[in-house]
C-alpha cells in the first residue's frame, strides 16, 4: 500500500511538471512575433539596427518571464516536491 502511495506521489509530481511546461507555448509564440517584427523594422530602417536589437532582446526577456515561472514550478516539482511529500506521508503514517 505504501509503495502505491509513494508511486502516486512520484507520478503526480512528474505529470504536474510536464503539464506546467505547457506554458512554454506562450513565450515561444510571443518571442517569435517580437523577433519577426524586429526583422521587419531592421529591413525597413537598417540604420536603426542597434536600437532595435537591444529593445528586442529586452522585450524577449520580459516575454520569457511567464515561461520561466512555469519552469521554476516544474523544477520544484521534479527535484524538491517528491522528497518533501514522501517525508510528509511517512511522518503522517508514523514511520
Amino acid at each position: 500500500m505504501l509503495e502505491l502511495a509513494i508511486g502516486i506521489i512520484l507520478g503526480g509530481c512528474a505529470l504536474g511538471a510536464g503539464c506546467a511546461m505547457i506554458a512554454g507555448i506562450g513565450p515561444g509564440i510571443g518571442e517569435g512575433n517580437a523577433v519577426a517584427k524586429a526583422c521587419e523594422a531592421i529591413g525597413r530602417q537598417p540604420e536603426s539596427k542597434g536600437d532595435v536589437t537591444s529593445t528586442m532582446l529586452m522585450g524577449c526577456a520580459i516575454a520569457e518571464t511567464t515561461g520561466l515561472y512555469a519552469l521554476v514550478i516544474a523544477i520544484l516539482l521534479i527535484f524538491v516536491a517528491p522528497n518533501m511529500l514522501v517525508n510528509t506521508l511517512l511522518n503522517a503514517l508514523g514511520k
Binding site: A61, I62, E64, T65, L68, Y69, L71, V72, I75
Partner: peptide, 13 residues
C-alpha cells in the same frame, strides 16, 4: 519577484 525569478530561472535552466 519577477526580476529575481527571471534571472534565477534563466541561469538555472
Amino acid at each position: 519577484v519577477s526580476m529575481a525569478f527571471r534571472h534565477y530561472g534563466n541561469v538555472l535552466s
